[in-house]
Design a protein around this nucleic acid. Sequence first.
DNA 1: AGTCCATGTTGACATCGTTAACTTCCCCGG
DNA 2: CCGGGGAAGTTAACGATGTCAACATGGACT
Lengths: 233, 233
Amino acid sequence: MLSTSGMMSTMSASKGGRSAYHHGDLRNALVEAATELARGDGPEAVVLREAARRVGVSATAAYRHFANQADLLQAVKVRGQRELADSMQRGVEAAPGGGDKQQAARDRLWQIGRGYVRFALAEPGLYRAAFCRVPHVSDHPWDEGQPDAAEHGEEYRSFDMLVETLDGMEAAGVMRPGVREGAEFAAWSAVHGLVMLILDGPLSRLPEPVRDAVIDRTIGTVVAGLTREPVRS
Amino acid sequence: MLSTSGMMSTMSASKGGRSAYHHGDLRNALVEAATELARGDGPEAVVLREAARRVGVSATAAYRHFANQADLLQAVKVRGQRELADSMQRGVEAAPGGGDKQQAARDRLWQIGRGYVRFALAEPGLYRAAFCRVPHVSDHPWDEGQPDAAEHGEEYRSFDMLVETLDGMEAAGVMRPGVREGAEFAAWSAVHGLVMLILDGPLSRLPEPVRDAVIDRTIGTVVAGLTREPVRS
DNA sequence: AGTCCATGTTGACATCGTTAACTTCCCCGG
DNA sequence: CCGGGGAAGTTAACGATGTCAACATGGACT
């Protein structure tokens, strides 16, 4: 009953409900188009008029589904977060997973980290959109107050995966004593910062091999900072 | 003899050179105004027309001194970086500095980190501007090719301070063996990422005491990851 | 059959970045 | 001393964007 997917009250349109005037699934179509814009050139490329243009609809039609272009951007953000989490999920599932339990717990942190960075570098525009500042989502009546309770409702699933991983490390007894609390933020900060410095910042011109080494070094530092023993490369 | 400060070829104006028509120091005035805009609301608030308006000059006058608004933004970026480095410098200088040599080397990393974060939280808009993506500085004749050699000419002094600190740690023998290379990027990534998550991202709503704890935890993790022995809180 | 309202449309406005063409004023050589 | 030339500023205009107000359409439900 939230405002998530196209679930308008009385409306037959769901599959072929397009009558050349009433699109039938405009909201999703717009989010789709806007997402492609972000994928191409980041959040600043998410321009409402262009998204509408691509869907073949007038610009103002978008205002039937979004309060703002900020609101549209917010939708793109959510999609970006989802794609990030999905990508990481696939990466983790396709992992070897052998060896002893303790090593596995450590390895999982590595995999999570590498999966995170891999997605960001593969989809720079979308990643930047997923973490961009969204100016101000003006609240419309149908936009029932932003979900403030529940901390973050389903978005930031990538963060949840990180939390689970760290819990697993603690359970396996590989974690340095007393560092569990807040470790998720430390780890997240490191990979997010690394990605941002590479994407927008001063590390953008690093030659690829150096870049990859830096990535491993950064993740390695975090792992070393959180675990009891130093880890092999 | 680069394009840094107001050093126009044949021009008397330097102090009182304002004749109501020829401003005399427009470039600096514009950078100043633009910097204030950024300080207030971040890089997206750096709008060329508004900066010109505040200086009391027509919008197009800015194009005598900047190729683009991107160019203007770039100038703000440089200023932001300088303010960051200055702030960190002051913080480091006002440090106790007692105790044994090894502990001092470790402490300095803490101070650098905290100083970095402190500035970012005190000047969020300017910090975001200092690390924002700048679209494309169209090159004008008087804008003699961007400095690509010398890696980064004087900007990112904060980074240089970090490098010196890490060198000091290695010299003092407190650094975990084999981790020196790339350590600057790992450390930078952690604090930068932390700041971005707090400023623009999902950590923005953290209550202040929790936030401060997270900051210490993040820096602590990096320090632990780079040094031989665990460190006191 | 008739009506209501969600959904789209057209038209207009303010703001922004940017270019073109014109104006001022100061420096420098004759 | 004076007159030209160019640096530095100005006004006018264009295209693009976000957004609002007023109008059109057509499916769903009485």
